[in-house]
């Protein structure tokens, strides 16, 4: 009995001691763990997201670029002179950044906009008067679009002046021309969307051109002879009608927000891919001398012209 009693008492004390001991252990463990979380980059969560170390070793710097989906379009290393602003003017990159800004502000604008006659104009009024930062949002979208047209032109100008379209980059220049066209079309399709006088008459002028397309427009050369009329020509296809009205607004909206952005994204992907595959950006490369031109070896397909000038 005494034994039992002792046991009982000892049991209670033992349990208490044990709990105390366990608590201390738990506390120490928790403290240890908290301590270990201070090394954030050692946690499983962190390592699952970032798979390389971010120290200053050569390897980590390279992997930081190569294992990041947003950065991996870059090579790990580039020519030391290629980072110079004087060579690239940064216009291609800025154009892309502006496209991102436009996508971002564009999506926000879409929340407030109905592409329907009557409602569209009111939406803009509402956006400017009632939506917090609505005016700023619309202004940014418009000015970024204008700026993108400018930067795309200057990019093209720079690429021409540095002869960067020459072998092996010919095809990427062609892709670039398509991108420039798509940039202009994106801007133009957005012009009608506020449904105001400015957009309406600009698009009226613009689609009058389509009406005059040779062969495919009813007012163009040989259009009438090919059976084109107001209701089946290329202008009708663009406007979804014979006048700039509700259907034109909807079509313009779809092209502006879905059609052309998808197309331009595809061409951009090819453009950036080809920059890498064609050997990175073209320079600044060492100058070449006239005396170093290698004479062309032509295949049987193309015969060089024999006679010199005159």
């Amino acid at each position: 009995m005494a034994d039992e009693k002792q046991n009982g008492k000892g049991g209670l004390i033992g349990v208490l001691e044990k709990v105390k001991g366990d608590t201390k252990d738990l506390k120490n463990r928790a403290l240890d763990e908290i301590q270990s979380y201070k090394d954030v980059d050692k946690t499983q969560l962190y390592k699952s997201v970032f798979r390389v170390k971010h120290d200053e070793s050569q390897r980590s710097r390279a992997l930081g670029i190569l294992t990041n989906v947003f950065l991996h379009l870059h090579p790990a290393k580039i020519n030391r002179d290629a980072v110079r602003y004087s060579y690239t003017w940064g216009m291609g990159g800025i154009s892309f950044y502006l496209f991102v800004v436009l996508t971002f502000t564009g999506v926000l604008l879409m929340f407030y906009y109905h592409p329907t006659k009557g409602q569209a104009y009111r939406d803009i009024m509402y956006l400017e008067a009632d939506v917090p930062f609505g005016t700023l949002l619309r202004n940014m979208h418009r000015w970024a679009a204008h700026l993108m047209v400018i930067t795309v032109w200057l990019h093209m100008f720079r690429v021409f002046l540095t002869g960067s379209y020459k072998k092996p980059r010919e095809f990427n220049w062609v892709v670039g021309v398509v991108l420039m066209l798509l940039t202009l079309l994106l801007s133009f399709t957005g012009y009608l969307l506020p449904d105001d006088q400015l957009g309406f008459w600009a698009v009226t002028v613009g689609t009058t051109m389509a009406m005059n397309t040779p062969l495919l427009g009813y007012a163009g050369p040989f259009g009438a002879q090919l059976g084109m009329n107001q209701f089946n020509d290329v202008r009708f296809a663009l406007l979804g009608g014979s006048i700039v009205d509700a259907n034109a607004l909807l079509r313009s909206y779809i092209w502006h927000c879905i059609g052309i952005p998808i197309l331009i994204s595809i061409f951009m992907a090819v453009h950036f891919w080809r920059v890498r595959k064609d050997g990175g950006i073209s320079g600044p490369s060492p100058v070449m001398l006239e005396s170093e031109i290698k004479e062309l070896k032509r295949g049987a397909v193309v015969a060089p012209m024999k006679s010199g000038g005159r």
């Binding site: 002046l161 540095t162 002869g163 960067s164 020459k166 072998k167 073209s282 320079g283 600044p284 490369s285 060492p286 100058v287 070449m288 006239e290 031109i293 290698k294």
Partner: peptide, 8 residues
């Protein structure tokens, strides 16, 4: 072939 990759 000249002027590829530099201003001239």
């Amino acid at each position: 072939p000249l002027g590829s990759g530099y201003y001239t």
